[in-house]
Computed example of a mutant assay.
Amino acid sequence: MLSLNSRKYKDKVQATGKQEIHRNIIEGCKLGQQRSQYQLYQLYSKAMFNVCYRMMSNREEAEDLLQDSFTDAFHRLHTFRYESSFGHWLKRVTVHKCINEIKRKKTNLDYYDDMGWFENQEEEKEEAYGNGLTVENVKKAMEHLPSGSRMIFSLYLLEGYDHVEISQILDISESNSKSQYMRARRKIKELLNTNSHETR
C-alpha cells in the first residue's frame, strides 16, 4: 500500500507528465500543426462549450461561439506564455468572445430591481443548498434568473471573475454586481430547496 507521501509524489509525477503532454500539443499548435489543433480541441471543447452555453443560454449561439473562440485562440496562441494554466487562458478568451457578441448585439440585460435589503450588505458565506445541488439542477434554476443577474452569477461563481472585473465587463457598479449576485444566489437556493421538498 502506498504511503501518503508516495501517493502525493505519484500524483505530482502524473500531473507533471500531463502538463508536458499538453505543452507539446500547444507548441504543435503554435507551429500550425492540424493534428495538434485537433487534439487541443478534443481536450477543451466540451468545457468551453459549457462556458458558452452558460453565457448565452442558447445552444446554437454557444456552438458558433465555441468555434469562434478556438479560431481566435489559435490566432493568439503565440501570446500564451505558460504563466497560467492553458485552460484558464482559453476560458478568458472564450468568455470575452461571448461578452463581445452580447455587446455587438446590444442585448439589453435585465437585472433584479427589488434589491432593497441586498444593497450595501456584506457578501454572505456560502450556504447549503439542500439535496438538490447538482450541476443540472443549478443550470435549470439559473434559467429563472433575469439575464443580467444570471450572467453575473455565472461570471462570479462559475467562471472565476471578481466583482471589480464584472463591473467593468458589464458597465455597472461594483456594489450592483455584488448585490445582484447575492440576490441571484438566494433565488437559486430557494428554487433548489423547493424542488428538493417537492421530490420527496
Rank of each mutant, 00 (worst) to 15 (best):
L4H: 15
T71N: 09
L77F: 08
K12P: 06
N50E: 15
S154P: 05
I25H: 13
R81E: 13
K178A: 10
Q121Y: 12
Y53C: 12
Q37S: 06
R59S: 14
V95I: 11
F80K: 05
D72C: 08
R200I: 00
S167F: 10
D110N: 14
R186T: 07
R92D: 02
N120K: 14
H22C: 11
L170W: 00
G132H: 14
Q42V: 02
F74L: 14
H197G: 10
E27M: 12
L145W: 03
V51P: 01
E122D: 15
H75L: 04
A15D: 08
L77K: 05
E127P: 06
E126R: 09
E60C: 07
Y111I: 07
I26S: 09
E126P: 04
L66F: 13
H88N: 11
G130N: 10
R7F: 14
S85V: 03
A73Y: 01
I188H: 02
S85D: 07
E190K: 12
S6G: 06
Y161N: 10
T94V: 05
C29T: 01
S69V: 04
H78L: 02
N176T: 08
E136D: 03
G160K: 07
Y41A: 06
V164M: 06
S36V: 01
N5V: 15
L77T: 13
H144W: 01
N100L: 03
S154H: 05
G28A: 03
T71I: 04
D68A: 09
K10A: 09
L133A: 12
E165P: 02
E127D: 05
S173L: 10
Y156G: 07
M55P: 05
D11H: 03
E122P: 08
I26C: 04
I172D: 07
A15N: 12
K178W: 09
K46E: 03
T94Q: 11
S175E: 08
E122H: 10
H22V: 01
S84P: 00
A73P: 11
D72K: 15
K30Q: 14
K125N: 07
K105I: 01
T16L: 09
M55N: 02
N120M: 11
N100Q: 01
D114F: 15
T199Y: 04
D110Y: 13
H88F: 14
N137F: 14
L191H: 12
K140G: 09
A47R: 12
C29R: 00
